[in-house]
């Protein structure tokens, strides 16, 4: 269990190892919790506070391009909090629309990923054990090529003289090329394609754990396959559905690359807006305000969801 068993002779080094192993045994639990806490603090909370600070300052032509929010002069500390950025977001309907459309695209992408990913996860989980790893590998395989490359590949498939149009035209099914690029359709294709593995993996890990005898018991009691699915499989896979949906929904709301490359001018997503504010307008405070609001828009529903979710789901 501890390292002590492996120490052959209790010399000086042995003593040291024993002390360390004792410390690990005693503090191990604290340590295990402390490391991720520290990580979150350093790479999440601190940047969040920095962004929060910037969102409350005023833009300026300077370096960095905003005014400090506190000033210490003649022994007087002045703190100037500028809520104007948030006010600006509230007044300009562009931002509101971008938030709504981001949430909408994220919502429908999640639903689509669930509808496509569930059957895939189900089939993999029910496949013979020796096939499962191969199938999972195939799900993860696209990650081994660059994300950008894959999106460019989609451009090649979807564009006016792309693969799909060429095939349909040559088969005579259509006579005019379909316009797919720079539409929301292309954005959905790209997003669902990209995030599908994040849906499949948690679903798979939930489904593979379900005991085969539960399905047999249901069948034995007179349930047909569809009833078994609806009354046993589906309720027991709720934890996987929730985990997968979160893993898709949350990053998609802030998605930037896919709408930028596949979407058209009317694909308003908040990630794009953020980028524009930061790099095109160089308005860091407004960009920070956009980021803060996005976080609130995202975090609140997730927290509410977790509050309402029963603890023993799946257990």
């Amino acid at each position: 269990m501890s390292m002590q068993a492996h120490i052959a002779e209790p010399g000086r080094a042995g003593k040291w190892v024993r002390t360390v192993s004792g410390w690990f045994a005693g503090r191990g639990r604290t340590l295990v919790i402390a490391i991720p806490m520290l990580w979150l603090l350093l790479f999440f909370l601190v940047p969040f506070l920095v962004v929060g600070k910037i969102s409350l300052s005023e833009a300026a032509i300077a370096r960095p391009p905003y005014l400090p929010i506190w000033n210490f002069e003649d022994g007087i500390l002045t703190l100037s909090l500028n809520l104007g950025n948030f006010q600006f977001l509230a007044e300009d309907s562009l931002y509101f629309n971008a938030y709504v459309q981001s949430l909408q695209i994220a919502f429908f992408s999640t639903i689509l990923a669930l509808l496509i990913g569930y059957p895939m996860a189900y089939v993999i989980a029910r496949a013979p054990a020796r096939l499962r790893n191969l199938l999972l590998m195939l799900v993860i395989l696209p990650f081994w090529t660059s994300f950008l490359l894959r999106i460019y590949a989609w451009i090649g498939i979807l564009k006016t003289n792309g693969v799909i149009n060429n095939i349909l035209l040559s088969l005579g099914i259509i006579h005019e090329p379909l316009v797919m690029m720079q539409t929301n359709f292309a954005v959905y294709v790209g997003i669902v394609y990209t995030y599908l593995p994040f849906m499949i993996l948690p679903l798979y890990s939930t489904l593979v754990k379900l005991d085969e005898s539960l399905f047999e018991a249901a069948a034995d009691l007179g349930a047909r396959p569809l009833t078994i699915f609806l009354s046993v499989t589906l309720p027991l896979s709720v934890p996987g559905i929730i985990a997968g949906s979160m893993l898709v929904f949350i990053p998609v709301v802030g998605e930037f690359v896919t709408p930028e490359l596949l979407g058209g001018p009317d694909t308003l997503m908040i990630g794009r807006q953020l980028w524009t504010e930061f790099f095109a307008n160089r308005d860091w405070p407004v960009a920070s305000a956009v980021a803060i609001v996005m976080l609130i828009v995202l975090v609140l529903p997730v927290m509410l969801l977790q509050r309402t979710q029963p603890d023993e789901a799946g257990g």
């Binding site: 005991d211 005898s213 539960l214 047999e216 018991a217 249901a218 069948a219 034995d220 009691l221 007179g222 349930a223 047909r224 009354s231 046993v232 309720p235 027991l236 789901a313 799946g314 257990g315």
Partner: peptide
Amino acid sequence: PCDRPTNMMFQSYALFPHMSVEKNIAY
């Protein structure tokens, strides 16, 4: 199995973990 005039009590019980005792029995 769903059409057979048999019912089975499983070696592992195979109770539905998400259902109450009543719901399990009523299934």
